[in-house]
């Protein structure tokens, strides 16, 4: 049976792993390659490396980092942050990345998703969506690392991205990110129901029960977390044992 995935996210700034609370007050959690290798050995299913400075500072690619990661890590990994063109994707894949996460650039030019999927296959194109629930109760798409609001709903964009050929949706709730109060179950379940591609839930995982809920209630295919792993508040093997004991298909 296909396993539910536990994914560690490494946000990178100036070559170092960092993690913000609600995208602010960044703390340093070490060397990304070393940390990635540690997680791979600890049993994480997949790694995501996001250069959070990339979009704002217009940095083009993470190719060198991808190559260093590929040399030491024996599980699949995704690279993202400022990916804006077919050429960006080609270089990252050639440097050993398994998947590429694209966010703001795809929103601004949706045909980019179709072009990337046609060129490299849907399976390696992850569309990352940062979303925030506003006072009107609706979830909207935010761009550029959560700094630029849009009037497009998360659900509409997720469906469009899937129709264009995205292979996976990485859904981050800005309301929940960094809070450790649980994942955004409703919007995750809504997106998961609306699209026929895997949905990775991100933001808010604080306890093992939160992970159980995002799979059972949120219908997520994967759950992603960062700081709880980086600061050793939750051990990967213990989390996976708990989920397995609670009836979920998990790789141990």
């Amino acid at each position: 049976m296909l396993a539910k995935r536990i994914i560690a996210c490494l946000d990178i700034k100036n070559g170092r792993t960092v993690k913000g609370v609600n995208f602010e007050n960044i703390r340093d959690a070490g060397d990304p390659v070393e940390l990635g290798a540690f997680y791979a050995a600890a049993g994480i299913d997949e790694l995501v490396f996001l250069d959070i400075t990339a979009t704002n500072e217009k940095r083009k690619t993470l190719a060198d980092l991808a190559k260093k990661i590929a040399a030491v890590i024996n599980i699949p990994f995704t690279v993202g942050g400022g990916v804006a063109s077919i050429e960006d994707v080609r270089i990252l894949l050639q440097n050993g990345a398994d998947k590429i996460a694209v966010n703001s650039a795809a929103f601004k030019k949706p045909t980019l998703i179709a072009d990337m999927a046609r060129e490299f296959g849907s399976q390696c194109i992850v569309v990352a969506i940062d979303t925030k629930q506003e006072a009107d109760g609706e979830w909207y798409v935010y761009l550029n690392g959560g700094t630029v609001p849009t009037s497009t709903t998360c659900l509409a964009w997720a469906q469009e991205a899937a129709n264009l050929g995205a292979g996976e949706i990485l859904l981050t709730s800005m309301n929940h990110d960094g809070t450790k109060s649980g994942f955004a179950l409703e919007i995750t379940a809504a997106v998961s129901k609306a699209v026929s591609i895997p949905v990775i839930a991100s933001g808010g995982g604080g306890t093992m029960e939160h992970f159980e809920a995002v799979f059972k209630v949120g219908a997520a295919d994967g759950a992603l977390a960062a700081s709880i792993f980086h600061f050793k508040e939750m051990e990967v093997h213990a989390l996976k044992s708990f989920l397995l004991d609670n009836g979920l298909p998990i790789r141990l």
């Binding site: 049976m1 296909l2 396993a3 995935r5 299913d45 849907s122 399976q123 292979g167 996976e168 026929s196 591609i197 895997p198 295919d221 994967g222 790789r251």
Partner: peptide
């Protein structure tokens, strides 16, 4: 129910 392509860990 199952998504195509299959992507992930299976036994």
């Amino acid at each position: 129910t199952d998504k195509i392509p299959q992507v992930g860990w299976n036994t």
